[in-house]
Design a protein around this nucleic acid. Structure first.
Lengths: 201, 201
DNA sequence: ATTTTTATAGGACAATTGTCCTACTCCTAT
DNA sequence: ATAGGAGTAGGACAATTGTCCTATAAAAAT
């Protein structure tokens, strides 16, 4: 039977609030009243705010691992998987226009706060980076897979940032289409010289 | 007639602190003690926190207008000016790796807070967008100048975001080089108004 | 049935928040 | 010399912050 599992509910609500409001502006009271428990009870589950931040980052890490694994199974080709990644900008368009990318905005906020957990937040980025690099390697880009991964990851961050500022659907679609075409161009030029190999040299 | 001009000093310190720490985490005390005045005196100059935020955004708008105007004079060709824009990622590398892009991070934070001034913060983005579009128009891209402007602006945001997370200088240089080559490729294909390539080299 | 563990509520606590008020010191104009 | 405003300091204020304590209810174990 399902347990009430207050702890998981707390983490889930904190996850949502940290995304929608940011980490700093979200208080214990916000989370407690959102879950429907008292602040005192909250303390039973988490002693400090940093503790719940760690739990939220941990949840996001696990969710990301699961999501990437699912993408790896369903996508037929690496190119399809890469497109599946970038199209998350369209699937989550409404949320991104309102709150930005959950990975990037948390990472940015914790960097500004110089928070101890900022490195953990960056690890979520690394999960994406490594997964993306894996796809590029599978497409024959052994040497510059990492560079290509950072490139597409950065592109997604830029689109999310401007989508939040301008709330321009056309821009998002235009960029995503363009990145998809770029992925195609990489797929169709598997063993040709790459324009991205300027890094190792 | 040089006045002590405490007000300007306050705005300057608030500007710095809002960038380095974020708007929400920066308190009246932070600013007051940073300027070297009492909190009471602070109230004489600014009644509310939103009031000083407006003043800071106003300062940034004016600074941005000035910076863009200066770039417009010194750069010989539009392509040079565009490169001057994107190379700000390298000139301000240290700050960006520590605190991100001042424009993007403020816009994101205010969006999350759903702050009344979030539209004003986005206006700073618009200044850049319009300036960039003007350069592309001068390069013969009459029809898609706006799209190209949003593209390069988004690219800069993405690089800044990942630079903060990974603190990878090579990545920043690699992306900037690539964008510069993309600018060259646009310059050398002046009359062809077809879809532009995002590929480097 | 009794003890122990788990979970919850309610509030205490000092510190800090944004906001606001009053008293005092300058400087300047009369 | 004096009145008045501009600027500053110090603190009051209620509300909220993160943290912590204790009393108690519910559940589990004995």
């Amino acid at each position: 039977m399902e347990k009430p599992d207050t702890r998981s509910i707390i983490i889930g609500e904190a996850d949502r609030l940290f995304y929608q409001q940011g980490f700093e502006p979200t208080s214990f009271s916000d989370i407690a009243s959102s879950v429907g428990i008292s602040r005192g009870n909250f303390y039973y589950h988490f002693k400090t705010k940093d503790e719940i931040l760690e739990a939220v980052i941990d949840l996001r890490l696990r969710n990301t691992v699961g999501m990437l694994a699912a993408w790896e199974k369903q996508g037929e080709t690496p190119a399809d998987r890469l497109k599946c990644f970038i199209k998350i900008l369209i699937r989550n368009q409404a949320k991104i226009m309102a709150y930005g990318c959950p990975v990037g905005t948390l990472s940015n906020e914790l960097s500004k706060l110089d928070h101890p957990s900022k490195a953990d937040a960056a690890r979520i980025f690394s999960l994406f980076k490594d997964w993306l690099a894996r796809q590029f390697k599978a497409m024959g880009r052994k040497t510059d897979a990492e560079t290509l991964a950072l490139h597409i990851l950065g592109r997604s961050q830029g689109v999310a940032s401007l989508a939040t500022a301008f709330k321009d659907k056309d821009y998002v679609h235009s960029e995503v289409d363009q990145i998809c075409r770029w992925i195609d161009s990489i797929e169709h030029a598997r063993d040709s010289n790459s324009e991205y190999s300027n890094r190792g040299s």
